[in-house]
Design a protein around this nucleic acid. Sequence first.
DNA 1: GAGCCCTGTTACGTTATAGGTTACAATTCA
DNA 2: TGAATTGTAACCTATAACGTAACAGGGCTC
Lengths: 95, 95
Amino acid sequence: MLMHNPPHPGEVLKELCIEPLGITVTDAAKGLGISRKTLSSILNGKAGISPEMAVRLSIAFNTSSESWLNQQSQYDLWQAEQHRNELHVTQLSAA
Amino acid sequence: MLMHNPPHPGEVLKELCIEPLGITVTDAAKGLGISRKTLSSILNGKAGISPEMAVRLSIAFNTSSESWLNQQSQYDLWQAEQHRNELHVTQLSAA
DNA sequence: GAGCCCTGTTACGTTATAGGTTACAATTCA
DNA sequence: TGAATTGTAACCTATAACGTAACAGGGCTC
């Protein structure tokens, strides 16, 4: 179970990939084969990392697509867990 | 890196949770607080497991929400990886 | 056979999100 | 000053996760 708020994957992408390489958002978007707006949205936490985007990132930065998508899942799941007690779900047992 | 086609999470849900308990899809849907159609779609591989659904499953079956969402991620990622060579992405390196 | 339950599925709707293009404003820098 | 960079807003499309209502078929039981 996750205990602390995981960072948005876009944050990690910016700090660990874009900034260290010293490349512009514009050039990174070109390399990724996506629009500058899409990358900007991700970097600023306005959009998530889709499965296809995870593959793109893995190619461009020679990383693991799993790590990117897992980061996104952890992030999404943490948000969902915040509303766990609002869900009307009952324990299920044998009939 | 995933090497083999992961099963659809709905398959796992059916075989490891619904069938062993001997409960009907209708009753399981009621317990989960979702419509029978939604559960049916998941069980038959027509829909994925959303973050919120992962939390519902974790409550109803006393399991880990992470495991459900991770299964879905693995499944989605495998699909995306099948088109890895169709993406126009270039390696990114220091400017 | 008649009735009932369970199931998958179709049709219709809403809502959210990823992605695109275009354009604008603000900033930085040569 | 002029060019580059960036975030963002407006507008579009496609996909997907939900819901309800309705239907058809299979199975079970009086």
